[in-house]
């Protein structure tokens, strides 16, 4: 019990929560941007602009099929070559957005495809333009259908922030490692605590998704 009291001391817990704050900050920013880009790329893939969609589609496939860890490395090492200085924070966000928006593009594309094609024809017959039909008829329906896969992708994103420890993003897992590398008897308590923290965050999100799905569906 004394061990737990020391391991979960005020100072250590504050340090872990600082890590959690970074995890959440990176996650929220990345979720917002990757949702926007995922929507754009998903629609581009769906509407099949000649050549352009094929090129975009292929880039999406390449990025989707690489490990995120590799993309994080690349972002951190490649972007400063263009003269922009990156912090581990900005590099992680860029890497997560690049990777997750490509994953989301796939979700969006199949979501739109799942909406009955008769809907589009009906909307067009009623005088809406293609983009109006997309904006007001197809996308809202597709989005409702997409909630479960979207949210599980968001949960993946939150979990994936832990990979950024490799470029020393001071997030939850890294902070836990700092704590237990200074006193290694804390290893077990630290892992239990951060597992609990990740679980609570991700589980709440999945409950919220289920609630939303029921309300809309």
């Amino acid at each position: 019990m004394a061990l737990l009291e020391q391991a979960y001391s005020f100072v250590n817990m504050r340090f872990l929560f600082e890590g959690l704050a970074v995890t959440l900050e990176v996650s929220v920013i990345s979720i917002i941007f990757s949702f926007i880009f995922g929507l754009i790329f998903g629609v581009i893939r769906y509407i099949e602009v000649p050549y352009f969609s094929a090129v975009v589609g292929f880039i999406i496939d390449i990025i989707r099929n690489l490990p995120l860890l590799l993309i994080i490395f690349f972002t951190y090492f490649a972007i400063p070559e263009l003269g922009i200085r990156m912090t581990p924070m900005s590099a992680s966000i860029v890497a997560l957005v690049v990777f997750e928006s490509m994953m989301l593009a796939e979700v969006v594309r199949s979501g739109i495809q799942a909406v009955d094609s008769g809907q589009m024809e009906g909307a067009r017959a009623n005088g809406l333009t293609y983009f109006q039909a997309m904006r007001y008829i197809i996308l809202p329906q597709a989005l409702t259908k997409m909630i479960p896969p979207l949210v599980s992708q968001f949960i993946s994103l939150i979990k994936d922030t832990s990979l950024a420890t490799i470029i020393v993003l001071p997030e939850l897992l890294y902070h836990a490692q700092i704590v237990y590398s200074q006193n290694t008897t804390y290893m077990l308590p630290m892992y239990v605590m951060i597992a609990l923290m990740y679980f609570v965050v991700c589980y709440i999100l999945s409950l919220a998704a289920r609630y939303l799905e029921r309300r809309l569906g």
Partner: peptide
């Protein structure tokens, strides 16, 4: 200060970070 690891420090120096 930028915290580096053994695998990141030389690349970060070379790319001007």
């Amino acid at each position: 200060f930028v915290t580096t690891t053994i695998t990141t420090k030389i690349p970060l120096l070379k790319n001007g970070n």
